[in-house]
Every structure is written in structure tokens, then in C-alpha cells.
Computed example of a mutant assay.
Amino acid sequence: MSLVVVKPQTVTAEMLNTSIPENDYPAWSSETTYAADARVVLGHKVWESVQAGNIGKYPPDNDKWWVEVGPTNRWKAFDLSHSTKTRFSGSAWFEITAGRAINSVALLEFDGLRSVRVRAIDPSYGTVYDKTTILWTTPGVAGWYPWTFGERLERRNFHALDLPSYRGATIRIDIEAANDAGIGVILVGQQQSIGLGVLAGMQMGMRDYSRKEVDQWGEVKLQQRGYSRNRQISLKVDSKDIDNVDRILSSIRATPVLWLISDKFDQSNVYGWYSNYEIVIQYATDIEISISIEGLVEN
């Protein structure tokens, strides 16, 4: 298959409507005196007071009085990071009206989800897309015995890549989940295909940030931390498309995007950025491009 890249659409407060409340902490007030360690919500972010007697200090402008903790629970799924998750119980829905054509939706690094329904609702044409996917658990190893008796693993990622492009459509995502569920990233955007196909020889790896300490007696202490996925791929590109491919790759530098490398091996797909790419012009009609991809840190 061709390499498919989905660049996320930045979701703003004006674009989003959701069932997830934003009541993590009280809203910041210029008239309230805050104690040390008190937390407030301002600008869809959580702020923590670093000292007592904190009154009238606007958090974004006073780093001696406030420290930014991170996004509110509602917005953790839209901060483009795996390390934060929007958590909820039972069910949830999200509506995103981007004001531009969206043909791809992805939920990444989730847990506890049972099903997801994606709809595209255009103000003029009504519902132009409606598809529900049951997120079945899968066995860790292929075969009838593991399927019947083995440990089953939850899916962690979901992609819907066949949405029609309607500029004014609202993307609605309805989720049924367990009593404690979380979503790392909700990604909506436009997909782009790059090249004629991914060549054989893809390299898949991982960078582990866990710590291993050995004391003077040889005792080992292991501390499990996050990790990131690494991919090294080569593409075959028609020579007449090389300028466009170079422009696409240049436009997504230092940008987390969804890289869909294979439709056969789901684990080959990764959400992250490329560290570098090299174009080798060695044939009259076909050109090879090698890309080094590094995923965002996962837990």
C-alpha cells in the first residue's frame, strides 16, 4: 500500500461540543485568595498556585505565583499527546465542526472502549457518513487455541479513513465504554497518500525510557517508564511526483502525524514525526525515499 499520512486538524473551543464536562477544579477568579497548591481552571488548562496569599495574579502572566499543570480532562484528548488521556465512564460523545473538509478520524491509545460510531453530518445534505465499529478484543497470538482459551488483548487504536469530504460537515463521535475508559488522542484531519508503495525491508523498533539501576552488590532495580516506537521505511515514488512529495514532507516537519504504513500489520502504524528523510534519485522513472519515523512517548 502507499504510505498514508494524516495531519491532525487543530481543534479549538469554537469547534468542539462534547458530553465531557470541564469541572476539574473551580474557574479562576481575580477576587479569590488562593492558598498554596490550590488548583483552578483557566483557558481549558489546570493551574496550581505555588504560594499562599495568591490574589489577582493572572496565571498565564505570573509564573512566580502559578504553574501550568496541563489540559483539563475534556481537552486531554486534543493536546496531540499520548501521555494524557480524557477519562470517562459508560459513554461519551464529541462533535467537531472544523470548517474544512475532514476525511479521516482516529482514536489513539485508548482503553476500555467497546464501540465507536462516527458520523459526518452536513448542514445541507444531512448525514453523509454513518458507521459503527465494535472494538472486539483480540488474542495475543494467532491460532484457534489462543483465540478460544488464550489471553485477549484490548484494541488500542481505531481509524476511519473513508469519510467523504464535506467542508461544512460536523464530525460526531459516539463512544460506548466500560466504567473507566480513556482516550489518548482524538485526531481528525485530511489524509494524504505518498508514493507508489512501501518497499520490503521495513524496520520496526522501540526506544525504552525505563530505568535499570544496579547497586554495589549486584541487585537490580527496574523502573518501568514510557517508550516510543521507531520505524525505518523506504518508499517507491514516481519521478514526476517527487516535487510534490518533497513539499508534503517538508510541510509536516516537527509535527505529530499519523503514519499508516501497512494495512496488514497494525503495529507498524505509528503516531509521531519523522526525524529525517533522504531522496535517492537513481532510476529514470522511479525514485526511492527513506524515512526515519519516531513515535510519541506511550505508557
Rank of each mutant, 00 (worst) to 15 (best):
residue 41 V to E: 10
residue 11 V to Q: 02
residue 159 H to R: 13
residue 112 G to H: 01
residue 204 M to R: 15
residue 27 A to P: 04
residue 151 E to Q: 10
residue 95 E to A: 10
residue 127 T to L: 10
residue 263 D to Q: 09
residue 163 L to S: 10
residue 261 I to L: 09
residue 276 N to P: 02
residue 289 I to W: 10
residue 238 D to Q: 04
residue 193 S to M: 13
residue 111 D to R: 08
residue 210 S to E: 07
residue 105 V to K: 09
residue 79 D to F: 07
residue 135 L to M: 07
residue 200 A to L: 01
residue 32 T to W: 13
residue 153 L to D: 03
residue 234 S to C: 06
residue 104 S to P: 06
residue 21 P to R: 09
residue 296 L to A: 09
residue 135 L to D: 03
residue 256 P to N: 03
residue 272 G to S: 01
residue 278 E to V: 11
residue 133 T to M: 00
residue 36 A to R: 15
residue 292 S to R: 11
residue 111 D to Y: 14
residue 97 T to R: 08
residue 268 S to P: 06
residue 266 D to E: 15
residue 26 P to E: 14
residue 157 N to E: 07
residue 171 I to A: 08
residue 59 P to F: 03
residue 5 V to N: 06
residue 81 S to L: 13
residue 126 G to A: 09
residue 244 N to P: 07
residue 181 A to F: 02
residue 126 G to I: 13
residue 249 L to A: 09
residue 277 Y to Q: 09
residue 189 G to N: 01
residue 138 T to N: 05
residue 132 T to L: 07
residue 260 L to Y: 05
residue 245 V to P: 08
residue 9 Q to D: 08
residue 256 P to E: 00
residue 113 L to R: 00
residue 277 Y to H: 08
residue 79 D to K: 14
residue 218 G to I: 07
residue 202 M to P: 01
residue 246 D to H: 13
residue 137 T to Q: 06
residue 162 D to C: 00
residue 289 I to V: 15
residue 175 I to E: 12
residue 58 Y to K: 03
residue 16 L to E: 12
residue 14 E to A: 11
residue 111 D to A: 07
residue 103 N to T: 11
residue 60 P to S: 06
residue 276 N to Y: 05
residue 276 N to S: 15
residue 238 D to V: 13
residue 280 V to K: 13
residue 271 Y to W: 02
residue 21 P to E: 06
residue 100 R to H: 14
residue 17 N to C: 05
residue 170 T to S: 14
residue 131 K to C: 02
residue 194 I to K: 04
residue 188 V to R: 11
residue 266 D to N: 09
residue 275 S to G: 14
residue 61 D to W: 12
residue 259 W to V: 00
residue 134 I to C: 01
residue 59 P to S: 02
residue 178 A to G: 03
residue 138 T to M: 12
residue 44 H to R: 06
residue 275 S to D: 15
residue 235 L to H: 10
residue 24 D to M: 10
residue 272 G to C: 02
residue 30 S to E: 10
residue 237 V to G: 08
residue 68 E to C: 14
residue 43 G to K: 07
residue 58 Y to T: 02
residue 268 S to R: 05
residue 292 S to N: 11
residue 13 A to S: 06
residue 216 Q to T: 12
residue 60 P to Q: 04
residue 140 G to C: 03
residue 242 I to E: 09
residue 100 R to D: 13
residue 174 D to P: 00
residue 78 F to G: 03
residue 261 I to S: 03
residue 249 L to K: 13
residue 3 L to N: 03
residue 4 V to A: 11
residue 91 S to Y: 08
residue 231 R to G: 09
residue 82 H to F: 15
residue 279 I to R: 07
residue 231 R to M: 12
residue 49 S to Y: 15
residue 68 E to F: 04
residue 178 A to L: 08
residue 62 N to E: 05
residue 135 L to R: 04
residue 136 W to T: 10
residue 16 L to P: 04
residue 55 I to Q: 08
residue 194 I to Y: 01
residue 46 V to N: 08
residue 39 R to L: 06
residue 118 V to F: 03
residue 62 N to L: 06
residue 194 I to P: 00
residue 159 H to G: 05
residue 1 M to T: 12
residue 268 S to F: 08
residue 3 L to A: 02
residue 92 A to K: 08
residue 10 T to D: 10
residue 128 V to G: 07
residue 287 I to F: 00
residue 147 W to Q: 12
residue 69 V to H: 01
residue 181 A to T: 01
residue 136 W to N: 14
residue 1 M to K: 07
residue 275 S to A: 14
residue 27 A to M: 11
residue 171 I to G: 08
residue 279 I to V: 12
residue 167 R to Y: 12
residue 282 Q to F: 07
residue 159 H to S: 02
residue 78 F to M: 08
residue 69 V to T: 03
residue 6 V to P: 04
